[in-house]
Design a protein around this nucleic acid. Structure first.
Lengths: 226, 226
DNA sequence: CAGTATCCGATGCGATACTG
DNA sequence: CAGTATCGCATCGGATACTG
């Protein structure tokens, strides 16, 4: 008997669809490709997916040989890594991004705006190596228009790492960044330019010249925007 | 409220997944890409999909602007054609095929063998222009091992067209082709070579030299095999 | 923290029948 | 021929709670 995700066709397209044309699956793979390998990190990339469902999806990928699950090097739990076959799904997922970027230029829906998802994405792509300081430094984001609890975020650069906090870590802030949630999201995914957002006054950078001017060097945009 | 195929994410990958990560959708698009544009023809490519579901999928594609539906030029009903945006899904679907071809080399399951799907695919890729005859010609396929009712097929070449019949059209047969269903399927999708299948004696061509020798010229393999 | 187990409701989708 | 309408069950998947 045919399982629910099977098509009963020998066509290779159908075989791939049995893996990819399943709810959440492309997003799980996107997360794995983007370098998250702990369960909790993966979850942050798909916050609306229940943990049990994420677990079963990962199991399918593991059983099919596209993900390898190993005991975590540090801490408890496991690490999930794409196998070579799994990594080869990368170009497909990238094309998803490119295609949407080209052909779905409609406005981002309000319900798709998500401060924590945005900040998590941003943090992952910050280039700490190009952040012009050698001591610890702190950047505060303020997403105007977001709910109070998700309005302020702090990124702490330290020893080449960038950590994201939802609570004020208490350090002195070196750079203040303020923007409406929508504007920063649109910049992030490449729908509008940094310079345009600055000119319009929506995106505001407040801090020492050195940090403001180098902003585009260490604030990297999403993969599809680049 | 989020609809069932939506993810609530601004990420372009998620936006494409809302279209493509839906059951049957990649196969419907594959059919549209491969040149079927009548409802019935589309159905022949996804025989296990119910017509009502095919209908709703087509409607989604139409409403999203990836398919255009026009009154049929001949006969009743409509023609479904991909828009430019829809056609741009072609490379993605092709990569599905390539990826499976590279990474899913497991044996074709028995339940995936389907004589009518195979013959329909084959017919669509026959190159009538390279079939070496100027009058009407007839080729009989015998799929040994298939159920009696799907065992024999006839292709009639006439005026540069190739027609597929499940019933003996009564013409004199110019070329007899015989093969186990599995062997012909594997040749078709590129898992094994024509010459290998001939040498092993599984694929047998019986007819005038001219037709036998030119077989690879007009019997074209699936897109992913090429 | 890193997942699993359980529950239950919504709905996706397959089957069948029907209609212009 | 070219689809639509209806029905009903299976299952998908979201929510919650729980455990090592």
């Amino acid at each position: 008997m045919l399982k629910h995700n099977e098509y009963g066709q020998f066509c290779p397209v159908a075989k791939t669809a049995e893996i990819l044309a399943v709810k959440w699956m492309p997003l799980v793979i996107r997360e794995l490709l983007s370098g998250s390998f702990r369960f909790n990190d993966l979850q942050r990339g798909v916050p609306l997916m229940s943990p049990s469902l994420l677990s079963t999806r990962l199991k399918v990928l593991e059983d099919s040989g596209f993900v390898r699950r190993n005991p975590a090097k540090k801490g408890r739990g496991h690490e999930y890594h794409l196998t070579e076959a799994g990594k080869e799904l990368g170009p497909i997922v990238e094309m998803y991004g490119d295609w949407a970027q080209t052909w779905l230029q409609q406005k981002i829906a309000d319900q798709d705006l998500d401060p924590s998802l945005l900040m998590w994405d941003i943090r992952r792509n910050l280039d700490a190596a190009h952040f012009p300081t050698d001591r610890r430094a702190s950047v505060q984001f303020e997403l105007t228009g977001a709910k109070a609890k998700q309005r302020r975020w702090w990124v702490v650069f330290e020893e080449g790492e960038a950590d994201l906090c939802m609570k004020d870590p208490g350090h002195e802030v070196d750079l203040y960044i303020s923007s409406p949630l929508r504007a920063l999201t649109e910049v992030w995914i490449g729908k509008r330019s940094i310079s345009g957002a600055l000119k319009s006054g929506e995106l505001v950078l407040d801090g020492p010249r050195k940090l403001v001017d180098t902003f585009p060097n260490w604030f990297l945009l999403s993969a599809t925007a680049r």
